[in-house]
Nucleic acid binder design. Structure first.
Lengths: 107, 107
DNA sequence: CCCTCCCTACGACAATCCTTGAAATGCCAT
DNA sequence: ATGGCATTTCAAGGATTGTCGTAGGGAGGG
């Protein structure tokens, strides 16, 4: 994960709707959810969901697969892990890692 | 760290210039750097730096203190840790944590 | 006290992002 | 083949964000 990919991923998550979509998909797990279900649960227009979820897709944070006439989206855990790794390096890689508790110190 | 604070922090980091500023401050450590030095190193206008660094400041990611006539900015490690924690929960808190290696599994 | 330096505040403009509704596409069932 | 459902694409608007130049305020040095 390089700097520009990180900016892309951060930008993808930096929006109420998109963060809510991503959290929902993470909570759901590898099975994923169809576009219709996500849009309905969040109370947004289908076209609006497409706009946001493709933002997430372009950033590599979600995967897309077709099941009959539904499109199923799922969180890409590897990409999220990569982002966490990048941020961890930027938070704890240089200075005093002691200031960055659970996720970073590894203790 | 609640959802809206996370969106704010993510949005603050989701920009080339701001991410570069934050990385520089993290690398520098608690001593921090003056606004002039940061602007010069990044080759941006002072007014432009103010715009971006206040974005980071509003999001709570950097601290500000005055030393004579210079303003010193430093990374706020606690805030960054909070963001990492929030993202970790959203990545590994629910589904199969095994997919999220170093930062999350804690092993 | 005045002058200089560092930084921020303000205003204008261009660029980008977000929302919405209507039309088009892909897929399945009949 | 026809109809119907799930989702995307398209176009238009309004709002937000980023960049730049210039002007203003606070802190030291003479």
């Amino acid at each position: 994960m390089d700097s520009s990919a990180a900016v892309s991923a951060l930008g993808a998550l930096a929006h109420d709707t998109r963060l809510a979509v991503f959290r929902m998909l993470v909570e759901r797990g590898p099975d994923g959810l169809s576009a219709g279900v996500i849009a309905e649960r969040l109370g947004i227009l289908p076209s609006s969901l497409t706009f946001h979820i493709q933002h997430l897709h372009r950033a590599g944070l979600v995967t897309q697969r077709r099941v009959s006439r539904q499109l199923i989206y799922a969180a890409d855990y590897a990409a999220m892990s990569g982002l966490l790794g990048f941020l961890t390096e930027n938070c704890c890689g240089r200075a005093d890692a002691a200031a960055c508790p659970p996720a970073c110190t590894g203790t």
